[in-house]
Write a protein that binds this DNA or RNA. Structure first.
Lengths: 194, 194
DNA sequence: CTTTAGTGAATGTGCGTTTGCAAACTAGCA
DNA sequence: TGCTAGTTTGCAAACGCACATTCACTAAAG
């Protein structure tokens, strides 16, 4: 019983992602998230206990769903390398980088001194690397990569390249982000292609 | 005439770098910088006009001196590739990553929506890439790189890899930062070594 | 004695949090 | 089909705190 919620937790977390991507570090305020979610700041506090609770919930959700774009890309693409491209660059369904600004970059907005935030960030990175490594192993098995290439260090290199391209784009902002990501990914993989 | 300053602007900017590296985004307060510099917050405002002025001066100084570690490493190393390693990893004088947390990463603490901060960040990135490209060209001329390798995209790849390694280290925090940086740099350059 | 550096205290404000209350819905009851 | 009690949601206003900024003053130099 009781009054039903007008906005689900998921929707609030999506609004949090939007607020993180839109405003900078000091613009990440309860009022901004509340505005995105169509609620009042007080309601957010009631639902998540505190601002820290809200951000922690967002970080946990982001870490927990880090594998999602990879699984979707795996379903929608035959070639493992094409799936990897789609998942990392975010053009899987024609939408350019839907949640990227709130992805790896978003974690930098948090207080990484806090062990809880750090744990979620590390889990997000670990899950992402596992997904990359799995797709690279599939690509090697499918003969898309050179025979001698080891997947583990290559997966780390791919993850490093994508994060680096994201950062550089955020700092300089020249050209579309998908282009920068694609260039970094191609440059990393080219020497190892079959 | 008049009383001489007890602390130079350079020293204050160095204290700012220390504060940026030590505390997170929300810990970057005037009191924190003042504590590092041995001054009071009011003095910082008097000297730089405002908190924004202080951070802007820091960003401009960081962008302006981005080439310094490269020039020093160039002097201290015979091989261009060794100089590149030293400059990027920061082990030039045996000190591990002296100012790295306040380098590329530090710019992410700023409000990149602000055109002034963004301009300084872009200049810092551009100068760093130019230095990398110059050292790579020297390496190619010295026969340390394969003949067919073009320096421009490789320089971008090296910059991307270093920034990515920095980010991933900040997020996960596993192992020493110099090791992660060295691994990323080696992985990027290996296919192009002579 | 003028000029500049530095500071402690006062001020204003932005923002996270608390609180009291109104709205919305269900369940039970007649 | 009404009516009421109970429960949960959402909000506006009040509160408190942290922090940037201002100001009046002292200290140190020429």
């Amino acid at each position: 019983m009781g009054r039903p919620r007008t906005t689900s937790d998921e929707a609030i977390l999506a609004a949090t992602a939007r607020a993180i991507g839109r405003h900078g570090p000091q613009g990440l305020t309860l009022a901004a998230v509340a505005g995105q979610a169509g609620l009042s700041p007080a309601t957010l506090v009631q639902r998540f206990g505190s601002k820290r609770g809200l951000l922690l919930a967002f970080a946990a959700h982001a870490a927990h769903t880090a594998a999602e774009p990879f699984e979707r890309a795996r379903r929608e693409h035959g070639s493992p390398l094409a799936a990897l491209r789609a998942a990392l660059i975010g053009r899987s369904e024609g939408v350019a980088i839907p949640e990227e600004p709130a992805g790896s970059l978003g974690f930098l907005q948090f207080d990484l001194t806090d062990p809880d935030f750090r744990a979620h960030a590390a889990e997000h990175a670990r899950r992402t690397r596992d997904q990359i490594a799995a797709l690279l192993a599939d690509a090697a098995a499918a003969g898309e990569l050179a025979a001698g290439s080891e997947p583990a260090p290559l997966a780390r290199a791919v993850q490093v390249a994508c994060n680096g391209a994201l950062i550089l784009w955020a700092l300089t902002g020249d050209g579309p982000l998908p282009d920068a990501m694609a260039a970094a990914l191609d440059q990393t993989l080219r020497p190892y292609l079959a």
